[in-house]
């Protein structure tokens, strides 16, 4: 007898038009969020805060109420939604530029206030939507369209380790960095996303997941090469792991 082992999550829109580039990890990340919304049965009381960048299109895929934030302001908008409607589940889906460059103040202050929000941040070491420019997470030596000779400290300074910064905030309940380069890591990523929602649902504080992701188009790589880069370069500097979890008893 045949059993269904794989299906489209209920929290994804029907007949959605996929708009991410081939091999981009955004698609996997959005799907994981949808699966978590399904598993926690919170789709009908969730509000997505869409940010600026490729991540904005999350509202084309996730079948939840959504509001779009000005660039960098996602967690300020999220704060407004959550404070107005504390019973809603509010989460942002942001890129690293939105979260950690233009929106660093909003991001860290939301964490410091211990807002009961969940933030998902895609780290692909570049500004994807605008064509692969240097962002806050661009690695030293990495060539982008605005660091054509490679990122050097003299001109550009250092890349930011986002999860570690978020973990330092007293209002953070959970902060983790995950990768989507292997099936095993995708499973771990889903668990982290789930946890970041659970701390919100339990009123414990700010939940955060940084997802290391590919941008094959702007990296000028095949999807396989891109995942290889995640493993070989990104995971060395941006080490996956749980950086804070206040639910863990030691």
């Amino acid at each position: 007898m045949a059993t269904q082992v794989f299906k489209i999550p209920k929290s994804l829109k029907e007949n959605m038009k996929y708009s991410f580039c081939p091999g981009c990890d955004h698609g996997v990340a959005v799907r994981l969020v949808a699966e978590v919304l399904d598993e926690l049965d919170i789709q009908d009381r969730s509000v997505l805060i869409a940010s600026i960048g490729c991540s904005v299109t999350a509202y084309d895929f996730l079948d939840v109420d959504s509001v779009e934030a000005p660039h960098g302001r996602a967690l300020a908008v999220g704060t407004g939604v959550k404070r107005a409607k504390p019973n809603q589940v509010v989460f942002s889906y942001q890129g690293d530029g939105d979260f950690a460059s233009i929106g660093l103040a909003e991001s860290l202050h939301a964490a410091l206030r211990g807002e009961k929000l969940t933030a998902i941040c895609i780290n692909n070491t570049t500004y994807g939507m605008t064509g692969g420019q240097l962002g806050p997470t661009t690695l030293l030596g990495q060539k982008t369209t605005t660091s054509t000779m490679g990122r050097n400290v003299e001109y550009y300074g250092y890349p930011i380790k986002i999860a570690e910064h978020v973990a330092l905030c007293d209002g953070t309940a959970y902060a983790a960095r995950v990768s989507l380069d292997t099936v095993a890591n995708i499973r771990k990523a889903k668990q982290a996303i789930k946890k970041a929602f659970e701390v919100q649902l339990n009123g414990l504080g700010f939940g955060f997941v940084e997802i290391l992701a590919t941008c094959p188009t702007n990296w000028r790589m095949t999807p396989e090469q891109a995942h290889e880069r995640v493993r070989k370069e990104m995971m060395k500097h941006y080490v996956p792991g749980v950086y804070k979890d206040i639910t863990e008893t030691k």
Partner: peptide
């Protein structure tokens, strides 16, 4: 609801978020 926002950028964006509900 009341928040002492970290900046005016945040304050008005919080207002936008609240209004969306």
């Amino acid at each position: 609801a009341y928040v002492s926002a970290e900046s005016e950028l945040a304050a008005i964006s919080m207002t936008l978020g609240a209004c969306s509900t």
